[in-house]
Write a protein that binds this DNA or RNA. Sequence first.
DNA 1: GGCACCGTTCCGCTGAGTGGAACGCATGGC
DNA 2: GCCATGCGTTCCACTCAGCGGAACGGTGCC
Lengths: 258, 258
Amino acid sequence: MPAGQPEQRKPVEGGLQSVLTALDVLDCFAHEEELGISDVARRIGVAKSTAHRLLTTLCARGMAEQNPETGRYRLGMKLFALGQLAANRSQMHKIALPLLADLKERTGATIHLAIPDGVEMLYVERLETFREMALMSAVPRRVAAHATSSGKCVAAFDEVFANARLTAGLPPETQRTLGSARDYRAALLQIRQRGYAVSIDEAVVGLTSVAAPVFDRAGKACAAISIVGPTPRILANVGGPARLVQSAATVLARQLCR
Amino acid sequence: MPAGQPEQRKPVEGGLQSVLTALDVLDCFAHEEELGISDVARRIGVAKSTAHRLLTTLCARGMAEQNPETGRYRLGMKLFALGQLAANRSQMHKIALPLLADLKERTGATIHLAIPDGVEMLYVERLETFREMALMSAVPRRVAAHATSSGKCVAAFDEVFANARLTAGLPPETQRTLGSARDYRAALLQIRQRGYAVSIDEAVVGLTSVAAPVFDRAGKACAAISIVGPTPRILANVGGPARLVQSAATVLARQLCR
DNA sequence: GGCACCGTTCCGCTGAGTGGAACGCATGGC
DNA sequence: GCCATGCGTTCCACTCAGCGGAACGGTGCC
């Protein structure tokens, strides 16, 4: 370290360095299915030996796994095990489940509960309808926030989240995905006015979704409930689903704040 | 440390100590929804300050969360986010999904894919049937391995797993749960002979399941596919479901080894 | 065959991580 | 009302765990 600076203290750290680095390693895999040691080391800016040590440790506990054929690494199933526990125990999840089931019964469509995660929406629960199963499996568990009704919904009521998505860019998923900051902001404004969001073929061609925001105690949009279905069927009567998701979201929010 | 020992080296460790300890902390929450700092420190045998530092670090990255009301800690949603990625990317999951969907269509029942995790079975995928949804939600995502057909199935073909369950005990879930080591071993023997497992009201009263083992490249039972339904309906014709899960499991195993 | 890169291993230096002690604050039994 | 107990949190000095760099064997591409 080049001397000269009057020994600036930096207690800023969020905690233990090696643990933080280990978690950084896991984060590396958020958008890459498989990575080698050297890759990981480069991404998080540590020595190769350090990355190797960290990954070996993570593997020892099942948080990561090594592909014996390629020698590269991937996320481990232990993460899934713990993640399931986390989700099942979350207050929101517990309260939301019956509401979502009711929504599904009333609409006969697929219902999602999603929360913001970084610049994407993470689908925490998905209740599928039998006949539409094939369609739905086209929707991954995590989608860029500007391409879905849930994502736009949360962004509309969370300035920080909206801006994060903007600076991360608005990559097109389909021809109808919002592509410019101008369109994006206009869409958010309309959502704030209407109280719900609609996405027509913006994430997957042929699928339309309607979402309403769930507000937490602090008044922040902490989740969204959405209905997804084939575009023609949903568009035939947008008002119905819109009213239903809104009321479900409101009930959920009220029970959360209790 | 009391001197006297000739300074025995112990390079046995699976890796970085502080990272391993951090993962131990997460494991503490496997069977407890919420824990305080002191609890955690006691469980993993470190100083309170260490536990606090570790949990603060985990919270900083969303792997844990602090309940602002009680000051205690729980698992964080980041685990869920990463866990979903891990599951979706797993080879088995990718191959199994269409097979499971087909099974569901043929039987009209609820289908599970489960993997062994510790002394329990972890449900990696669940395809629910509309009309039975209420019933199924009684089944949690993780069940003691002696009370389910999937668990007995894997145990029947994995001595280590079976013994682990035995030493952990056979807590009764219902009146019909296998309770003695003798019954347990007898059940496993029968499963080995028949090639599939049946659980009648052993996990949840009124529900019966039929499961077949999935073998990996090494010939170990690495997962199980199961069909669940109301006891009377399943028992009316056990052979059908049994043959179907067996064939699905065989196909999955073959494709896995490819 | 040479080169570049991979995952892995080894090693000595040092500062990050450790446990213990002290803090302020609830809780509850006397 | 008060002391005892336990909580989550903060601080600190000692020391050994974790760091980067160098070296190794293997693989695949020019």
